[in-house]
Amino acid sequence: MNNGIESIFKSYLEPKEVYRGGKNIPASNKKIYKLSSNENPLGASPKAVIALKKAAEILNVYPDQTDIRLREALVADFNTQLVADQFICGNSGSEIIDMLLRAFIKEGDEVIYSNPCFLPYSVFSRWYGAVQVDVPLLESDYSLDVEGIIRSITPKTKIIFLTSPNNPTGTYVPKPVLEDFLNRIPKNIVVVFDEVYRHFADAKDYVSALPFVKEGHNIIAINSFSKTYGLAGQRIGYCYSTATIANYIRQIHKPFLLPITSIEAAIGALSDSLFIENTVKTVREGRKYLSEAFTSLGIKFWHTQGNFFIVEPPIPEFDFTDKLMAEGIMVRPVSQFGAPGKVRITIGTQEANEALVNALKKIKPHTF
């Protein structure tokens, strides 16, 4: 029976594309290398695991009412360049994105992003009735179309999403480009700068949002514990900004938001400098190895500053991923991210990377 409830549904929440995460490893008797979700190739920080196990002994107790202990640990991790009030923590970087949109967007406001990019920028914006403005990355090298974004700004523009390194392309926004961009946009616009892969970047002109936050720009940097620290399963992230912006956002931060296991694991992970160093070393060495292998095999790829590559196989992307899966390698098509015909491949351990290259060599006669 139709009771008329549909009349109060918001029109902009009609069924459309939704974000779907990467698949888990299927049940199989053979070895499967999961290179599809940009997870940490070394597992989780041992110090985080120890802290999590200890926290599991007191699951009957409510967690911290606020995130202050984790924010203080982040202050130390940032060498006291920021204060605790400039950090906000949440259940993953995705929830931080949602929180920022709730804080700044009302129906009819405009949000700018640049495909190919992380799908929640557009999906979550739609939840709040935002007008979505896609200014695609420049097709030749997936660099940011700065002039295109500037031209697209209107009085209704509230948020501009930038990502560096960008998922799924691995490209980044050089420091001079970001500096020039921030100085040119209107002062009432918030730039949400997604830097969850920042630890892996080694380009000389790579920059995080930190210096621009310190200068007082309206920029919010999103970070996650899922990549470098290996805590994807704990769903914990954070952002930092000016004290003015952070204190405004904190007004919608729920009490008891973070599970005690996530709080303790994150604090433990921040102290695990050896694990962080080994993770970054593994990714950068794997990046060099795979760059050389892709070049040798004649596979078109884009140079990356992340822990993944985007490649363009010479056959339809789903055929390509199916052939690799048959060889025990999971990779991810990224048409959903705005990159049709492309596939994203996570950098793994050396064993996994070699297995990938061997699989590519095996299917090459039939595809390249």
Rank of each mutant, 00 (worst) to 15 (best):
N2S: 13
G4T: 09
G4I: 07
K10S: 13
P15K: 11
P26W: 05
Y33A: 08
K34F: 01
S37P: 00
N38I: 12
L42V: 02
G43Y: 11
A44Y: 01
P46T: 01
K47I: 03
A51G: 03
A51Q: 12
L52E: 15
K53R: 14
I58Q: 13
L59M: 13
Q65L: 14
D67L: 03
D67R: 04
R71Y: 00
E72H: 10
A73M: 03
A73L: 07
L74V: 07
V75S: 07
F78D: 05
F78L: 14
F78C: 03
F78M: 12
Q81D: 10
Q86C: 09
I88D: 00
I88E: 05
G93I: 00
I97C: 04
D98W: 09
D98R: 14
R102Y: 00
A103I: 01
A103E: 13
F104T: 06
D109M: 05
Y113Q: 05
N115Y: 00
N115T: 15
F118D: 02
L119S: 13
P120Y: 09
S122N: 05
V123F: 10
F124V: 14
V131E: 14
Q132V: 13
L137Y: 01
L138K: 15
D141Y: 11
D141R: 11
Y142K: 13
Y142V: 00
I149E: 03
I149C: 07
S152M: 04
P155K: 05
T157G: 11
T157W: 08
F161N: 11
N167H: 11
P168K: 00
T169I: 02
G170R: 03
T171V: 06
Y172N: 08
V173K: 02
V173S: 02
K175C: 04
V177K: 11
D180T: 14
F181L: 06
N183C: 10
N183A: 15
V190R: 09
V192E: 06
V196H: 04
R198H: 13
F200S: 08
D202S: 14
A203Y: 05
K204C: 04
V207A: 14
A209V: 09
F212W: 05
G216F: 05
G216M: 10
H217C: 07
N223V: 00
S224I: 03
K227E: 12
T228E: 13
G230E: 10
Q234H: 09
Q234M: 14
I236A: 11
G237Y: 04
Y238L: 02
C239E: 02
I245A: 01
I245R: 09
N247S: 15
I252K: 12
L258Y: 06
S262N: 09
S262V: 05
I263S: 04
E264N: 14
G268H: 03
L270N: 08
S271N: 13
D272Q: 08
N278E: 14
V283I: 15
V283F: 03
E292I: 04
L297W: 04
G306P: 03
N307I: 02
F308N: 06
F309D: 05
E312M: 03
I315A: 08
F320T: 04
D322L: 12
L324A: 10
M325Q: 14
A326R: 15
I329D: 08
V331P: 01
R332S: 13
P333L: 08
S335K: 13
R344H: 01
I345R: 03
I345W: 02
I347G: 02
N353W: 06
A355F: 04
L356D: 06
A359S: 15
I363D: 10
P365H: 08
P365L: 10
T367G: 00
T367S: 00
